[in-house]
Design a protein around this nucleic acid. Structure first.
Lengths: 152, 152
DNA sequence: GCCATAATGATAAATTTTATCATTAACTGA
DNA sequence: TCAGTTAATGATAAAATTTATCATTATGGC
């Protein structure tokens, strides 16, 4: 069964969770790191680092910190890389686990989903190529419902 | 059925094919463009642009031309973008059509394959999200047979 | 609240990518 | 085969992105 992810709004509970994830990794919970996380969490289409850096400059977060924090959050499983149609590197808020992205080519909105079944494909690849399959990365493109309506 | 691609060696026939592909697109068949293509064709793991630029400098091909040519070859379907584990943008020789990459995380070798069947997944996504699915991008990681042997 | 030190901002440097333009060389047609 | 047209290239510079360094700041543990 396929499960879709809806990002929860900011809450005390979320802050506690965040603090826990950070703490477990020995990382401090700073104003800047939360600003970065909140920014990405609010953008369904994700952001490139330069885009994020521009938006965060106003909030007093420097570019170097954006780079550092994106790498950190990726390591913690809170951000995931997505490559849009143009091959641009974007980061999107995520939950730890095995998710894939359904990306709208018009507005860029990203819907995460899990529950892909590639076991058959992987079995064939194993026998045909001798590879030991360890994982995969899947992205699906299309037009979301509202862009479909607008673009005819 | 899954079909694997083995890149043919350089030949008169290949040159004719190349000339045809270039010509049909109104692009000229230059020494530099062939050098770029030959370089990528010989590297199963693909190359980043800076890597390619470094290798081609010796052959008298400037960086700007490498960028321009990679974009051209991608447009012609002769190169495809692949993102390795580190998220680096690499270009890999390809054939026109719908192929996916099986990437070895140790040596970086890429085996193209076609014949993935995601129609069921795409049908579910369509009904669940309202998206009009237009395509997908799939990469499978693992250890190739020889790296598997070496790394135990 | 104090302390140790991780994290930040500022700055600079390195790297990657794009733009410009005079020169070169690939295709066209005779 | 050869000249003419013009796309493509190299050189150069500029812009943009990414990484490194280090003094200062602020977080988390006690």
């Amino acid at each position: 069964m396929i499960k879709f992810i809806i990002m929860a709004k900011r809450s005390k509970q979320e802050e506690a969770e965040l603090r826990h994830v950070f703490g477990k990794a020995g990382a401090r919970f700073t104003r800047q790191r939360e600003a970065v996380w909140q920014l990405f969490k609010g953008k369904a289409r994700g952001l490139t680092i330069p885009e994020a850096a521009k938006a965060l400059k106003r909030k007093g977060v420097g570019p170097a910190t954006v780079y550092r924090t994106a790498a950190l959050l990726e390591g913690l499983g809170l951000l995931r890389r997505v490559h849009d149609a143009g091959g641009e590197r974007r980061f999107v808020a995520s939950r730890p686990g095995h998710y894939h992205a359904l990306v709208c080519r018009s507005c860029g909105q990203v819907v995460d989903f899990e529950g892909c079944d590639l076991s058959l494909l992987e079995r064939v690849l194993t026998t045909e190529t001798g590879f030991r399959i360890e994982g995969h990365h899947l992205e699906v493109f299309g037009l979301c419902a509202s862009c479909k309506a607008v673009n005819k």
